[in-house]
């Protein structure tokens, strides 16, 4: 564990907590893309299925449980919570996110480290995470009013993967040259997608 990765995990955790706070405190999910939240839930389920088979560390297991349960809780709130679900702008959140799932799955079948169920699920989750923010970015560009908490949520989500890229650079120089090309490429695409958001976020 290095500082970049720990900072990345904390920033990621913080982004989820900010979103949970927004939804819980304001009982509203206006401006939040439910499709992005559903994609993140799929990302975590596909990536953390080794939760019960491989024990890496208490930290690793606890964080996996936190990410899976928080993303499921947010999707549940946006679908089932009587007050929150009313504030979901369904007609605005129109990105065809099924296309993203299908594309990530096809990519994972072709580009993976080993053609095994575990590795294909892992690659699928990495590719899907890289593009999962798209419905949310489209929603932000449509909606005039980006409320602070939603803006902060997206900001921290973009920052977390940038920290992970620093983590991969650090590990490259300290731990030898593992083939991380899947993580590298996806991480760069993921952080790149936020570039225009960061541009407007800081200009506003």
């Amino acid at each position: 564990m290095n500082a970049f990765r720990f900072l990345g995990d904390m920033t990621h955790l913080f982004s989820v907590l900010v979103l949970l706070l927004k939804i819980y405190a304001t009982k509203s999910c206006s401006g939040v893309s439910r499709k992005t939240q559903e994609l993140y839930m799929v990302v975590f389920l596909a990536r953390y299925m080794d939760l019960f088979t491989d024990y890496i560390s208490l930290y690793n297991s606890v964080m996996k449980v936190v990410f899976i349960t928080s993303s499921a809780a947010i999707v549940w709130c946006m679908r089932r919570h009587p007050q929150v679900r009313r504030t979901y702008d369904k007609e605005q959140d129109t990105f065809r996110h099924v296309v993203l799932v299908a594309a990530a799955f096809v990519l994972a079948l072709i580009f993976n480290e080993r053609f095994t169920f575990r590795e294909i699920c892992w690659a699928f989750s990495i590719y899907l995470e890289a593009v999962a923010i798209l419905p949310q970015l489209v929603l932000l560009q449509r909606g005039r009013n980006v409320d602070n908490l939603t803006g902060q949520y997206v900001f921290f989500l973009g920052a977390y993967r940038a920290f992970y890229i620093l983590n991969w650079i650090y590990r490259y120089f300290t731990e030898g040259h593992h083939s991380r090309w899947i993580s590298w490429l996806s991480g760069l695409v993921q952080t790149g997608l936020y570039a225009d958001f960061f541009y407007y976020y800081f200009l506003r």
């Binding site: 990765r5 990621h12 964080m63 480290e113 590795e119 040259h177 593992h178």
Partner: peptide, 10 residues
């Protein structure tokens, strides 16, 4: 050698 990246990250 292209070793598979360890899956110890979140």
């Amino acid at each position: 050698e292209c070793l598979a990246a360890p899956k110890d990250e979140l």
